[in-house]
Write a protein that binds this DNA or RNA. Structure first.
Lengths: 339, 339
DNA sequence: TTGTAAGCGTTATCAA
DNA sequence: TTGATAACGCTTACAA
């Protein structure tokens, strides 16, 4: 059915291997032969069969991105998705295809299938799916992989890429202090994930540099229980005299703002707010939300290019890559350094 | 290096084809032989090489999902992403892997590469990327594909899956009428895409059933110019006496609500609101937003299973599949049929 | 129920 | 600069 390398060879009167050389850009071919072969390929509308090539070369030119299937939010996470977009672009521009797979915890996991059956050349693993059994498998098979997000185990021995949550948080808090806020509360959905911990560390680190502030530090966490969150916010303001909130995402920021409005606290004069993640919504909020912007596109791009380097066995300069955050100053934290 | 089918054959003392039969679940094997072969595979930690299988069988057990790279929003679209999640799940449960590729308009497009080089067995194409040249290529190569979303060309001759935008819109407007709202405005970012057109048709269709309402119909579109949107909203209320808005997404709904609040219109007593897409935010808005909920998970699932049927050359009952929407009644449209 | 052998389309080694 | 030829690991008639 399809036209093969042999058909081209026959038509031009050369051997299949010569045609193969042209396809692969081998330079030892004479210009004349190359030209004739290329013409024949165009005339016959020849396209190399990637299945045969994969088989012959022992590679697939495909990388896999593992998705955390347990995490309902992964796919509704705009930021994660920008990373996916970036990974695909980086892959494509390096001649790789991108396979996406949910990681289930089943015994015959989809990941081990990819690895054992050699369906891809390497994989990007979200930190939430890093577990020792899987690492053993990968290392034992000498399979190239990169972790997306700082993992909570083996972080010194793995190649990973993450946002600099520590600095992002620290900068935001320093900004709030500079604006004259004194009692800054950190509000998050959890405090256990690696990125939450890093942000909390950054929060403390900024407070440490302003005397008397660390003592008043307070971290609120609420899971997804937003009415609980609202209560805690009220308490923080009324009982502890909180005058600013650093929120770990936009949903939390939204609830903080709602609570403040319900109690007629004015923003930003009485209470300031900064949120992580610069959602499209953030700039339209009332007041517009200051945000720690995270370049998840870059995150994905770095992860993909790091993986491809590993696949090609190039030397990798550093094991861990941290992406800088950018602080976006809007009205919600604009107190102007007033007391 | 790797252990192959021959190693298993040798160890058990059978021929490679017998081992192959066991791998492929061929039933003519004697229980005894099967058992011995399975034991040997376990002992040697054998896994079939998918590259070799793909080559031998002439298939890849992979489907591709094309992403609209031009559309910045695709990847930040929560709903689209739930479809991706569903597609992956459906693929996996049918033994397929999922490849994701951006569609660039370059001459050597990534899609034609997938098709010509036989990298995947079929593809899911978003309606926004349907163009005649591409369809020609696919049809000419006899390549299985399914369109995600109703396409604006050839919709009668293609297999596609979409949400029932017409009914969703119609139901929402009927609901508003039932609640006693009289002058309902449809607010959208555009009016040209197929789904917008269908929604507008549904909007008109509902109005037609209530006398005197169709004459007062008004469709507002604003692109991404939200200050323009706010002006138009004001006009609609003040000059045309609008008392309800059907919004084509949450961002629009947000701006409508903001405008209403700024002008001290009370919701839902003076003005009612319904939005398309039940974002997590919708239920936390003030008042909580009534929404036309779209099951994009089901959308993706249907698309994937339809494609896999086509790949297997099974007869497909209908060319076009419409997914029902669900109306979620919250406070923002609860007027209770008052005048 | 099992074995033999050809074949899938390309790459890669070696020789010319 | 080119050509023969083996090899990649599996599937699949066909034969036994």
């Amino acid at each position: 059915m399809g036209v093969t390398i042999k058909d081209i060879a026959k038509r031009v009167g050369v051997s299949p291997s010569t045609v193969s050389r042209v396809i692969n850009g081998n330079t030892v071919i004479s210009d004349e032969t190359r030209k004739k072969i290329q013409e024949a390929m165009a005339e016959l509308n020849y396209h190399p069969n990637s299945r045969a090539r994969n088989f012959a070369t022992g590679s697939t030119n495909t990388i896999a991105l593992v998705i955390d299937a347990e995490d309902e939010n992964t796919f509704s996470n705009t930021f994660f998705n920008r990373s996916v977009y970036a990974i695909e672009k980086a892959a494509q521009s390096n001649g790789y295809n991108l396979l996406i797979t949910n990681d289930t915890d089943d015994a015959g996991s989809s990941i081990s299938e990819l690895v054992y059956e050699k369906k891809v050349d390497g994989l990007i693993l979200p930190s939430s799916r890093v577990r020792s059994g899987l690492l053993e498998l990968l290392n034992q098979e000498g399979f190239p992989y990169v972790v997306l997000g700082e993992p909570d185990i083996c972080s010194d021995n793995l190649d990973w890429v993450d946002v600099n949550n520590f600095e992002g948080s620290k900068n935001a808090v320093t900004h709030l202090l500079d604006q004259g806020y004194k009692r800054i509360v950190f509000a998050a959905e959890d405090t256990k994930t690696v990125f939450s911990k890093k942000r909390i560390e950054g929060y403390y680190s900024a407070l440490d540099e302003e005397k008397g502030c660390r003592e008043k530090a307070e971290v609120i966490s609420c899971g997804e229980n937003y009415s609980l969150l609202c209560e805690k916010i009220e308490d923080a303001i009324e009982k502890q005299g909180a005058d600013a909130f650093l929120c770990s995402n936009n949903v939390i920021a939204y609830h903080v703002m709602k609570t403040l409005k319900n109690h007629n606290y004015s923003m930003p004069s009485q209470v300031g707010i900064v949120t992580f993640d610069n959602y499209p919504f953030a700039e339209y909020m009332d007041p517009p939300l200051s945000a720690v912007d995270v370049d998840t596109y870059l995150l994905g791009e770095k992860a993909a290019s790091l993986l491809i380097k590993k696949i090609n066995k190039e030397e990798v300069e550093k094991r861990a890559v941290l992406i800088d955050t950018e602080f976006i100053f809007r009205d919600s934290s604009k107190r102007g350094g007033l007391e």
